Computed example of a mutant assay.
Amino acid sequence: MQCSYFDAGRCRSCTLMGQDYGIQLADKQAHCRDVLADFPMAWSEPVRSAESGFRNKAKMVVGGTVAAPTLGILDRAGHGVDLSDCGLYPVNLAATFAPLAAFITRAGLEPYDVPGRRGQLKYVIVTASPDGELMVRFVVRTAELLRRIRAELPWLREQLPTLAVVSANIHPEHKAVLEGSEEIVLTEQESLPMRVNGFGLHLRPRSFFQTNTAVAAALYRQATQWLDQIAPESVWDLYCGVGGFALHAAGPGRSVIGVETSSEAIASARRSAAEASVTEVEFVVGDAGKFAFGSAASTRDVPDLVIVNPPRRGIGPELAGWLESSGVRSVLYSSCRAESLARDLAAMPSLRPRRARLLDMFPQTDHYEVLVELRRD
C-alpha cells in the first residue's frame, strides 16, 4: 500500500507504510516467536488482513477553523492535518468525512486549538458496522455545543442516511486523552450492532471493539474452534468487553460467565445475548482480578477454562498468580502485546502454551494480536 500522506511526510502513524505486506506479516510472526521463544508451542499460519480499507473506526482530531475544519491529526506545532483521504478507511467510512466537515461549519462548532487552549470541538469519532450503519461521537469541552449539534442533526441524517447513533462526549480537560467520563446520547438508538459470525454485538459509544472487524471475526472463530476441541463445561471470559468471546463460547452443555468493568459494555453484552437467544451465558460488572480471587468468586466453582483478553499491559502478577494456583485446566489468552504476554506466561509455569496463532489486526504498523492456548501439566 502506498500513501501520499506518508510519502509527503504529513503523517507517519503507519510506520511500515510502503513495505511489502508479505514481509510485514513475516516480520511480525518472527518478532512474536522471538519474544515468546522461552515457551515452545505449535504455531499456525498467521491470519492476514486486507492491506487497506480495513478499519471500522476513525478517530479524527478536529483542527483548522469553523469555516475550514480539518479531520485527521495534529502536527508537531499542534495544527490540524487533514487526512480525509486516508486509505485505511473503507469507502462507506471515508464518505462520512466531507459531510461531517460541512456539519461542523453549519453548526458553528469551533475546533479546539491545542496551543491556544481555546475552542470546543476536539474529536469526531466515526464507527461503521458491517451492515453499513454509522455511529458518530463528538468530543467537546462543554455541553454548550449540544444545542447546536441537536439543531443540525436532521441535516446530518439527510446527508448520512445510515447514521444510527450520535452522541456527545464531554471532555473539559486539556489532557492528551481521547475522551471524558460523561457521554450524552443524542439519538433514540443507543448502540450500533456489529454483526460478527452471526452475532449482533451491540457497541455503545464508550465500549471497546476491535478496529478490524474481519480479523476480529477470525479471532473469535479460532478461539471457538480450540474451545470445541478442549470441550470445557464451564468458561469464564475475563475482560469480556461487549461479549464477543463469551457469546461464541456459549452453547448447550457449557456455561459461560463474562466479566467486565464497564457497565455500558455489560449492558450491550446482555442485549446481544438476549437477541441471539443465548441462555447459557451470564454477564457480570466487575474487575477481572477481583472476580477471580475475591468475594465474587468465593461461591462459584473454578471453571474448566478461562479466556483473557486484557489491555496492552497484560493480566499482571496477581491474576496470573491466581490462574497458576487455581486448578483451571485451560486458558485462552488473546494478547495485543507479546512482551506483556511473555511476562504473564512466565508467572504461570504450570499452564503450558500448546499452540498459538498471530492475527494481523493492524497492517502497516508493527502491532498485532496473538491467541495462545495454555493447558495445565
Rank of each mutant, 00 (worst) to 15 (best):
Gly244Lys: 00
Gly244Asn: 01
His248Asn: 12
Ala249Trp: 01
Ala249Ile: 06
Ala249Gly: 10
Ala250Thr: 03
Gly253Leu: 05
Arg254Ser: 05
Ser255Arg: 12
Val256Leu: 04
Ile257Arg: 06
Ile257His: 01
Ile257Phe: 02
Val259Asn: 01
Glu264Arg: 07
Ala265Thr: 02
Ile266Lys: 01
Ala267Lys: 05
Ala267Leu: 11
Ala267Tyr: 07
Ala269Arg: 00
Arg270Cys: 11
Arg271Leu: 13
Arg271Lys: 14
Ser277Ala: 14
Val278Met: 07
Thr279Cys: 12
Glu280Gln: 15
Glu280Ile: 08
Glu282Gly: 10
Phe283Asn: 00
Gly286Ala: 10
Asp287Pro: 05
Asp287Cys: 07
Gly289Cys: 10
Lys290His: 14
Ala292Tyr: 03
Ala292Arg: 00
Ala292Leu: 07
Ala292Val: 04
Phe293His: 14
Phe293Arg: 15
Gly294Ser: 12
Gly294Cys: 10
Ser295Gly: 14
Arg300Asn: 09
Val302His: 06
Val302Tyr: 05
Pro303Ser: 08
Leu305Trp: 03
Val306Trp: 06
Ile307Leu: 15
Ile307Met: 15
Ile307His: 07
Asn309Lys: 11
Pro311Tyr: 11
Arg312Met: 09
Arg313Met: 12
Gly314Met: 04
Pro317Val: 09
Glu318Tyr: 08
Glu318Phe: 08
Leu319Cys: 03
Leu319Gly: 00
Gly321Glu: 03
Trp322Val: 02
Glu324Gln: 14
Ser330Leu: 04
Val331Phe: 00
Tyr333Asn: 01
Cys336Ala: 09
Cys336Arg: 02
Cys336Asp: 08
Ala338Asp: 02
Glu339Ile: 02
Glu339Leu: 03
Glu339Tyr: 09
Leu341Asn: 01
Leu341Gly: 01
Leu341Pro: 02
Arg343His: 12
Arg343Pro: 08
Arg343Ala: 05
Leu345Phe: 10
Leu345Gln: 00
Ala346Asn: 12
Met348Phe: 09
Met348Val: 06
Ser350His: 13
Leu351Thr: 04
Leu351Met: 12
Pro353Ala: 11
Pro353Gly: 07
Arg354Trp: 10
Arg354Glu: 15
Arg354Ile: 13
Arg355Trp: 10
Arg355Asp: 09
Leu358Ala: 10
